[in-house]
Design a protein around this nucleic acid. Structure first.
Lengths: 120, 120
DNA sequence: CCTATATTTAACTTGATAGTTAATTAACCG
DNA sequence: CGGTTAATTAACTATCAAGTTAAATATAGG
């Protein structure tokens, strides 16, 4: 998984990590703080790993404060996702009727070109 | 990976699958048609698997037309992603200065409560 | 019926993810 | 220094994801 966008999507594909981001949207937090809601379900090293995934995806940044590692949300990477999403906005924002109509024009154009299912 | 949102994000975490969605945003296409740009890099069964991932994530729907399986984009699932993203919009849309200021108020509030790093 | 085309399924390999426990590093503080 | 707290690293296991080749299924059409 080389590209940044894939790494970001992969990082978001886990409810634990998304919950961590939600917590961080309230302000920065240390690892222990972030871990607290999950320690019934997993160990601290598991939390460290999740944070490392988020960090490598550029979704958070970790700093240092004595023995603590305050984490904060990095919004820019989420903007990349948002930008990617934009091209599809029409597919949910238009009324379903208008979308259907739009798709009909596209596909009927293709049929006009021969309904050849991709054959040369 | 139980929840729908995780499944959707995971499906999006692959450039091949995102390219397939991009193609489908131009109109419906058969499996062979969708596969064409990738057959230098992977086999047809691999394509079938990618499509299955997209389908299970609810991002596309497959229908039947003789021996063809026309696929089309399903925008609703992308809306779920977009809705989830909304809560973070402030983290990239505000000017960086204003975001910094916002975070300062949040964290200074925490410090006022004792800078206790999550201790009870 | 036979064959070509479209697509999927089966069985398998490989590498990545997500978790574990135990040990280690780092910094504070009495 | 020695103990305590915070966090990471190491080593390992199990499950999942992505790809392969070969075989199977489904439909059209002469």
């Amino acid at each position: 998984m080389e590209d940044e966008l894939s790494k970001t999507f992969a990082a978001l594909a886990d409810p634990t990590r998304r919950a961590m981001l939600a917590r961080l949207s309230k302000g920065e937090a240390s690892v222990t703080e972030l871990a607290k809601p999950f320690l019934k379900d997993m160990s601290l090293p598991a939390v460290t790993k999740h944070l490392k995934v988020l960090e490598k995806a550029g979704l958070i940044t970790k700093t240092r404060d004595a023995q603590w590692r305050p984490c904060r949300l990095n919004g820019e990477r989420l903007k990349d996702v948002s930008d990617w999403m934009e091209q599809y906005r029409v597919f949910w924002e238009e009324s379903l009727d208008r979308l259907e109509a739009y798709l009909k024009t596209v596909t009927s154009n293709q049929k006009a070109k021969g309904k050849n299912h991709g054959k040369k």
